[in-house]
Amino acid sequence: MHTVWKGSISFGLVNIPIKLHTATENRDIKLRQLHKECNSPINYSKVCPVCDKEIKNEEIVKAYEYSKNKFVVLDDEELENLRKENEDKAVEIVEFVKLEEIDPIYFEKSYFLSPDSGGGKAYSLLRKSLQESGKIGVAKITIRSKEQLAIVRVYKDTLLMETIHFPDEVRSSEEVPNIPSEENIVQKELDTALMLIEQLTDQFDPEKYQDDYRTALLELIEKKKSGELTVSASEKEAKIPSDMTDLMSALQASLDKTRKMPTTRKRKEPIKKKA
Protein backbone atom coordinates (compact mmCIF):
# COMPACT_ATOMS: atom_id res chain seq x y z
CA MET A 1 0.00 0.00 0.00
CA HIS A 2 1.43 3.37 -1.07
CA THR A 3 2.65 5.70 1.70
CA VAL A 4 1.37 9.26 1.26
CA TRP A 5 2.85 10.80 4.44
CA LYS A 6 5.37 9.91 7.14
CA GLY A 7 5.61 11.47 10.57
CA SER A 8 4.44 10.81 14.09
CA ILE A 9 1.31 10.89 16.20
CA SER A 10 1.37 11.80 19.88
CA PHE A 11 -0.97 11.84 22.85
CA GLY A 12 0.46 13.18 26.07
CA LEU A 13 4.10 12.09 26.20
CA VAL A 14 3.53 9.03 24.01
CA ASN A 15 4.99 9.46 20.52
CA ILE A 16 4.31 6.97 17.70
CA PRO A 17 6.19 7.04 14.37
CA ILE A 18 3.60 6.34 11.67
CA LYS A 19 2.92 6.11 7.95
CA LEU A 20 -0.26 7.34 6.29
CA HIS A 21 -2.04 5.32 3.58
CA THR A 22 -5.14 6.39 1.64
CA ALA A 23 -8.02 4.23 2.87
CA THR A 24 -10.46 4.82 0.01
CA GLU A 25 -10.20 5.16 -3.76
CA ASN A 26 -12.30 6.70 -6.50
CA ARG A 27 -13.48 3.91 -8.79
CA ASP A 28 -15.16 6.18 -11.34
CA ILE A 29 -14.51 5.19 -14.96
CA LYS A 30 -12.67 8.05 -16.65
CA LEU A 31 -13.64 8.66 -20.27
CA ARG A 32 -11.30 10.47 -22.66
CA GLN A 33 -12.48 13.11 -25.11
CA LEU A 34 -11.57 12.49 -28.77
CA HIS A 35 -11.75 14.61 -31.89
CA LYS A 36 -14.73 13.12 -33.74
CA GLU A 37 -13.09 13.57 -37.15
CA CYS A 38 -9.85 11.63 -36.50
CA ASN A 39 -10.38 9.99 -33.04
CA SER A 40 -7.32 11.72 -31.56
CA PRO A 41 -7.31 12.60 -27.82
CA ILE A 42 -7.92 16.28 -27.12
CA ASN A 43 -5.13 18.20 -25.38
CA TYR A 44 -5.73 21.14 -23.09
CA SER A 45 -3.36 24.09 -23.13
CA LYS A 46 -2.81 26.94 -20.68
CA VAL A 47 -3.52 30.01 -22.78
CA CYS A 48 -3.41 33.67 -21.78
CA PRO A 49 -6.57 35.31 -23.23
CA VAL A 50 -4.91 38.75 -23.40
CA CYS A 51 -1.58 37.75 -24.96
CA ASP A 52 -3.36 35.06 -27.02
CA LYS A 53 -0.55 32.56 -26.62
CA GLU A 54 0.19 29.33 -24.78
CA ILE A 55 1.91 29.86 -21.42
CA LYS A 56 4.75 27.72 -20.04
CA ASN A 57 4.79 26.62 -16.39
CA GLU A 58 7.74 28.88 -15.56
CA GLU A 59 5.69 31.88 -16.71
CA ILE A 60 2.87 31.21 -14.23
CA VAL A 61 2.63 32.74 -10.74
CA LYS A 62 0.14 32.03 -7.93
CA ALA A 63 -2.24 34.74 -6.72
CA TYR A 64 -5.31 35.28 -4.53
CA GLU A 65 -8.28 37.06 -6.11
CA TYR A 66 -9.64 39.28 -3.33
CA SER A 67 -12.15 41.01 -5.64
CA LYS A 68 -13.09 40.84 -9.31
CA ASN A 69 -9.82 40.92 -11.32
CA LYS A 70 -7.88 42.20 -8.29
CA PHE A 71 -5.08 39.90 -7.13
CA VAL A 72 -2.41 39.55 -4.47
CA VAL A 73 0.57 37.72 -6.00
CA LEU A 74 2.38 35.19 -3.78
CA ASP A 75 5.77 33.87 -4.84
CA ASP A 76 6.92 30.29 -4.37
CA GLU A 77 9.46 31.18 -1.67
CA GLU A 78 6.83 32.85 0.51
CA LEU A 79 4.50 29.87 0.19
CA GLU A 80 7.32 27.39 0.88
CA ASN A 81 8.36 29.27 4.05
CA LEU A 82 4.77 29.24 5.28
CA ARG A 83 4.48 25.53 4.55
CA LYS A 84 7.69 24.72 6.47
CA GLU A 85 6.53 26.73 9.49
CA ASN A 86 3.29 24.76 9.75
CA GLU A 87 4.29 21.30 8.54
CA ASP A 88 6.23 19.72 11.37
CA LYS A 89 5.27 16.17 10.37
CA ALA A 90 3.50 15.55 13.66
CA VAL A 91 -0.10 14.71 14.53
CA GLU A 92 -0.93 15.84 18.04
CA ILE A 93 -4.10 14.50 19.64
CA VAL A 94 -5.41 17.46 21.61
CA GLU A 95 -8.51 15.87 23.15
CA PHE A 96 -10.73 12.78 23.19
CA VAL A 97 -14.46 12.77 22.40
CA LYS A 98 -17.23 10.32 21.51
CA LEU A 99 -17.67 9.58 17.80
CA GLU A 100 -21.43 10.20 17.91
CA GLU A 101 -20.78 13.80 18.97
CA ILE A 102 -19.46 14.61 15.46
CA ASP A 103 -22.01 14.96 12.66
CA PRO A 104 -21.01 13.04 9.48
CA ILE A 105 -21.18 16.28 7.46
CA TYR A 106 -17.74 17.11 8.90
CA PHE A 107 -16.02 13.97 7.59
CA GLU A 108 -13.82 14.38 4.52
CA LYS A 109 -11.21 11.70 3.73
CA SER A 110 -9.97 8.53 5.43
CA TYR A 111 -6.40 7.29 5.90
CA PHE A 112 -5.04 4.10 7.44
CA LEU A 113 -2.28 4.59 9.98
CA SER A 114 0.49 2.01 10.20
CA PRO A 115 3.38 2.05 12.70
CA ASP A 116 6.79 3.00 11.35
CA SER A 117 10.02 1.45 12.60
CA GLY A 118 9.97 1.01 16.37
CA GLY A 119 6.39 2.23 16.78
CA GLY A 120 4.57 -1.08 17.12
CA LYS A 121 4.13 -1.14 20.91
CA ALA A 122 2.99 2.48 21.23
CA TYR A 123 0.64 1.93 18.27
CA SER A 124 -0.92 -1.06 20.05
CA LEU A 125 -1.23 0.97 23.26
CA LEU A 126 -3.18 3.76 21.55
CA ARG A 127 -5.40 1.27 19.72
CA LYS A 128 -6.23 -0.63 22.92
CA SER A 129 -6.83 2.61 24.85
CA LEU A 130 -9.31 3.87 22.27
CA GLN A 131 -11.11 0.51 22.21
CA GLU A 132 -11.40 0.32 26.00
CA SER A 133 -12.49 3.94 26.44
CA GLY A 134 -14.91 4.03 23.50
CA LYS A 135 -13.45 7.41 22.56
CA ILE A 136 -11.78 8.92 19.48
CA GLY A 137 -8.89 11.39 19.35
CA VAL A 138 -9.19 14.89 17.86
CA ALA A 139 -5.97 16.10 16.23
CA LYS A 140 -4.42 18.55 13.77
CA ILE A 141 -2.23 17.62 10.80
CA THR A 142 -0.79 19.44 7.77
CA ILE A 143 -1.04 17.51 4.49
CA ARG A 144 0.11 19.00 1.17
CA SER A 145 0.40 22.50 2.63
CA LYS A 146 -3.14 22.44 4.05
CA GLU A 147 -3.76 22.32 7.76
CA GLN A 148 -6.48 19.79 8.58
CA LEU A 149 -8.58 18.94 11.56
CA ALA A 150 -8.73 15.16 12.02
CA ILE A 151 -10.00 12.38 14.22
CA VAL A 152 -8.19 9.14 15.07
CA ARG A 153 -10.27 6.03 15.75
CA VAL A 154 -10.09 2.25 15.58
CA TYR A 155 -11.31 0.52 12.42
CA LYS A 156 -11.22 -3.26 12.81
CA ASP A 157 -7.58 -3.85 13.92
CA THR A 158 -6.21 -0.65 12.40
CA LEU A 159 -5.93 2.95 13.53
CA LEU A 160 -7.82 5.15 11.09
CA MET A 161 -7.41 8.89 10.68
CA GLU A 162 -10.23 10.86 9.10
CA THR A 163 -9.72 14.47 8.11
CA ILE A 164 -12.71 16.62 9.00
CA HIS A 165 -13.80 20.07 7.94
CA PHE A 166 -13.29 23.14 10.11
CA PRO A 167 -16.61 24.70 11.23
CA ASP A 168 -16.30 27.64 8.82
CA GLU A 169 -15.97 25.20 5.91
CA VAL A 170 -19.45 23.75 6.53
CA ARG A 171 -22.17 25.93 5.06
CA SER A 172 -25.12 26.95 7.20
CA SER A 173 -28.28 24.92 6.65
CA GLU A 174 -30.23 28.16 7.11
CA GLU A 175 -28.95 29.27 3.69
CA VAL A 176 -30.65 26.35 1.91
CA PRO A 177 -33.59 27.76 -0.11
CA ASN A 178 -37.22 26.58 -0.17
CA ILE A 179 -37.11 24.48 3.01
CA PRO A 180 -40.77 24.00 4.08
CA SER A 181 -41.81 24.91 7.61
CA GLU A 182 -43.50 22.24 9.71
CA GLU A 183 -46.84 21.42 8.14
CA ASN A 184 -49.87 19.61 9.43
CA ILE A 185 -49.23 15.91 8.90
CA VAL A 186 -52.18 13.54 9.06
CA GLN A 187 -51.53 10.86 11.66
CA LYS A 188 -52.53 8.09 9.23
CA GLU A 189 -49.89 9.27 6.74
CA LEU A 190 -47.25 9.33 9.46
CA ASP A 191 -48.20 5.86 10.70
CA THR A 192 -47.95 4.47 7.14
CA ALA A 193 -44.54 6.08 6.62
CA LEU A 194 -43.28 4.67 9.92
CA MET A 195 -44.57 1.22 8.96
CA LEU A 196 -42.72 1.41 5.63
CA ILE A 197 -39.50 2.41 7.40
CA GLU A 198 -39.89 -0.52 9.77
CA GLN A 199 -40.38 -2.97 6.90
CA LEU A 200 -37.26 -1.69 5.11
CA THR A 201 -35.10 -1.64 8.24
CA ASP A 202 -32.13 -4.04 8.22
CA GLN A 203 -28.59 -4.27 9.53
CA PHE A 204 -26.21 -2.30 7.35
CA ASP A 205 -24.05 -4.51 5.15
CA PRO A 206 -21.95 -2.55 2.60
CA GLU A 207 -21.33 -5.74 0.59
CA LYS A 208 -24.97 -5.69 -0.53
CA TYR A 209 -24.45 -2.54 -2.55
CA GLN A 210 -22.65 -1.84 -5.81
CA ASP A 211 -22.32 0.94 -8.35
CA ASP A 212 -24.86 -0.24 -10.96
CA TYR A 213 -23.93 2.48 -13.46
CA ARG A 214 -20.21 1.65 -13.32
CA THR A 215 -20.95 -2.06 -13.71
CA ALA A 216 -23.19 -1.43 -16.74
CA LEU A 217 -20.63 0.92 -18.30
CA LEU A 218 -17.83 -1.64 -17.92
CA GLU A 219 -20.05 -4.31 -19.51
CA LEU A 220 -20.78 -1.98 -22.44
CA ILE A 221 -17.05 -1.23 -22.90
CA GLU A 222 -16.16 -4.94 -22.85
CA LYS A 223 -18.96 -5.72 -25.32
CA LYS A 224 -17.66 -3.10 -27.75
CA LYS A 225 -14.07 -4.36 -27.31
CA SER A 226 -15.01 -7.99 -28.00
CA GLY A 227 -17.06 -6.94 -31.02
CA GLU A 228 -14.08 -4.92 -32.28
CA LEU A 229 -16.19 -1.75 -32.26
CA THR A 230 -13.11 0.29 -31.47
CA VAL A 231 -11.33 3.24 -33.04
CA SER A 232 -7.68 4.22 -33.23
CA ALA A 233 -6.20 7.67 -33.09
CA SER A 234 -4.88 8.98 -36.39
CA GLU A 235 -1.15 9.44 -36.75
CA LYS A 236 -0.08 13.05 -36.80
CA GLU A 237 1.12 14.02 -40.25
CA ALA A 238 4.47 15.74 -40.49
CA LYS A 239 3.88 19.36 -41.38
CA ILE A 240 6.20 20.65 -44.08
CA PRO A 241 7.30 24.23 -43.45
CA SER A 242 6.09 26.73 -46.05
CA ASP A 243 9.60 27.71 -47.04
CA MET A 244 10.40 24.04 -47.59
CA THR A 245 7.24 23.74 -49.72
CA ASP A 246 8.32 26.70 -51.82
CA LEU A 247 11.78 25.22 -52.23
CA MET A 248 10.36 21.85 -53.27
CA SER A 249 8.09 23.57 -55.81
CA ALA A 250 11.02 25.45 -57.25
CA LEU A 251 13.12 22.30 -57.46
CA GLN A 252 10.31 20.35 -59.09
CA ALA A 253 9.69 23.12 -61.62
CA SER A 254 13.36 23.20 -62.44
CA LEU A 255 13.41 19.44 -62.87
CA ASP A 256 10.36 19.54 -65.16
CA LYS A 257 11.96 22.26 -67.23
CA THR A 258 15.15 20.30 -67.76
CA ARG A 259 13.16 17.28 -68.88
CA LYS A 260 11.62 19.29 -71.72
CA MET A 261 15.02 20.37 -72.98
CA PRO A 262 16.77 18.22 -75.70
CA THR A 263 19.10 15.68 -74.13
CA THR A 264 21.60 15.80 -77.13
CA ARG A 265 22.96 18.55 -79.26
CA LYS A 266 23.92 18.35 -82.95
CA ARG A 267 27.69 18.18 -83.24
CA LYS A 268 29.17 20.88 -85.29
CA GLU A 269 31.35 19.67 -88.14
CA PRO A 270 34.92 20.90 -87.87
CA ILE A 271 35.76 23.68 -90.30
CA LYS A 272 38.01 22.43 -93.02
CA LYS A 273 40.93 24.57 -94.02
CA LYS A 274 41.27 25.40 -97.72
CA ALA A 275 44.25 23.98 -99.46
Rank of each mutant, 00 (worst) to 15 (best):
K260E: 01
R27H: 14
F71Q: 04
G134T: 05
A139G: 06
E219W: 01
L229P: 08
R265Y: 11
K225G: 04
G137S: 02
K260Y: 00
E65T: 01
T192L: 12
S124R: 14
M1Q: 12
V138E: 01
D205N: 15
G120L: 12
P17K: 02
L194E: 09
K224H: 13
K135C: 10
V61H: 10
A63G: 10
E37G: 05
P115S: 02
K188H: 10
K68T: 05
K208P: 03
I151G: 00
D28A: 15
I164Y: 00
Q252A: 14
S145V: 02
D28F: 05
K121N: 09
A193K: 05
S8P: 00
R27N: 15
V73D: 09
E222H: 11
S181I: 10
D243A: 13
L217V: 11
S67G: 00
W5P: 04
A216D: 10
F11G: 03
K128D: 15
K156Q: 13
E78H: 01
E59M: 06
Y123C: 06
L229D: 15
A139T: 07
F112N: 12
V97A: 09
V176L: 12
L20W: 04
K56W: 01
S10N: 11
Y66W: 12
K6V: 10
K62Y: 01
R153E: 12
S254D: 12
I16M: 05
M161H: 06
K268Y: 04
L247W: 07
P17T: 02
V61K: 04
E58V: 07
S110M: 06
V231S: 06
T264G: 00
E92T: 14
E219V: 03
R144T: 04
N15G: 05
K236P: 01
L20Y: 05
V176D: 05
N81Y: 13
S226Q: 14
V94Y: 11
N69W: 00
P241G: 11
T245M: 15
L130E: 08
F204Y: 15
I9G: 03
K68C: 00
S10I: 07
D76A: 14
E100P: 07
K146R: 14
L113S: 06
I29F: 03
N57V: 10
V176H: 06
G12L: 00
R153H: 08
Q252N: 15
A150C: 08
G7D: 03
Q148D: 09
L20R: 04
E92N: 15
P49F: 07
I60M: 09
L194Y: 02
H21D: 04
K30V: 11
A122C: 05
S114K: 11
E269Y: 08
D212A: 14
I179W: 02
Q203R: 13
E80D: 13
P17A: 04
E77T: 13
I136E: 05
E189K: 01
